[in-house]
Design a protein around this nucleic acid. Structure first.
Lengths: 107, 107
DNA sequence: CCGTTTGTACGAACACCTTCGTACTACGAC
DNA sequence: GTCGTAGTACGAAGGTGTTCGTACAAACGG
């Protein structure tokens, strides 16, 4: 079985996390994960880039500690490491997610 | 009198703000501003880069809407636009500042 | 075994970002 | 007017990041 490297919360780096979240494609991934796309394969995400570019972005997110990736067959199940992020950078993910939702949509 | 362009909160762009905050030198500036360096000249900040590079970083922060710059003589007074940022991206600046203070330093 | 699906590795192209040095401008003080 | 201070403009160098296409590997199903 193939496994993937994940940093532990103590090794999270603010630079890496902010750089990761600064890219629009990666924010799309994070937003879709937060919108109930938990445990979906990379291919299930709607992204405006090719397959190898997609791989690249998922890896950047994983190496920053923002997502967890688990092999299941030939696919990878992706999930947000919301709790881990919050222990190290409290409120950061929530603020970025809320900001990414659009200007001010009180619904 | 020279004036400098500042975006209004409605024009703030999450991409620009996160990209700006993703750079370590710019986070130093923001942290020093939050640490009571309000209304200080650019030259008063402790930064590990040359003068022209410093100018570049201050401009990036200003154009993202993170700081306000006001001429006073030959100097520029810099201040954090904390309130403006908070209306557009609530909690974002606070979360980044708290995260930048170091892992977990309850003092 | 063979084919399909899912993702990776690799290299190349291209753009952008950070950094610097030098020359310059604007303002204030003398 | 002249000088010093604070910051800008400009160009160049070097690194890094995003993107793609193509070729490849790993797991599953029949």
């Amino acid at each position: 079985m193939r496994t993937l490297e994940h940093p532990s919360p103590a090794d999270f780096d603010l630079d890496a996390v902010l750089s990761a979240l600064a890219d629009p494609v990666r924010r799309m991934i994070v937003c879709q994960l937060a919108d109930g796309h938990q445990d979906q394969a990379c291919i299930a995400f709607a992204l405006p880039v090719g397959k190898s570019t997609s791989t690249h972005h998922f890896r950047v997110l994983r190496e920053a500690g923002i997502i967890e990736q688990r092999y299941q067959g030939t696919a990878i199940l992706n999930s947000l490491r919301a709790a881990d992020l919050d222990t190290r950078f409290p409120g950061l993910l929530a603020a970025v997610l809320a900001s990414a939702r659009g200007p001010v949509s009180p619904r």
